[in-house]
Design a binder for these strands. Sequence first.
DNA 1: GCCAACGTTGGC
DNA 2: GCCAACGTTGGC
Length: 136
Amino acid sequence: MAHWLIKSEPSTWSWAQQVAAGDKGTHWNGVRNHSAKLSLMAMQVGEEAFFYHSNEGKAIVGIVKVISPYYPDPSDPTHRFGMVDFAAVRPLANPVTLEAIKLEPRLSQMVLVNNSRLSVQPVRDEEWAIVLEMSR
DNA sequence: GCCAACGTTGGC
DNA sequence: GCCAACGTTGGC
């Protein structure tokens, strides 16, 4: 199973709102970037992703799971981009901040560090485990 | 609020 | 097909 990371500005869509959406989850629409699209297309139902708060908080705050495979994003007039649905799984006991991630040498290859603008990105298995360890 | 990094657009 | 101009993202 692959792991992922998705970003959201809390002022637009927060972890609290994601939790409130429950098992029905939310449509992750609005992605308009090719790299992000490739990750969305590769996602399988049941795979988990870190939920990262950008701008305010700048931390991984929870885990979501994919509850629907990739399908067209009706909000895209060009019909080039699609989306998946995510539902909240659980919060992290302690959010893992971008600062802490940057200080951890074993996470120096994370896309979050190297390509900070990419809103949907893959996470390596070892990176996933290290972040979970840091959240305890 | 600034600005660097990056992606996209459009003129040529 | 190149590349300058522009818009957006997101850390600082």
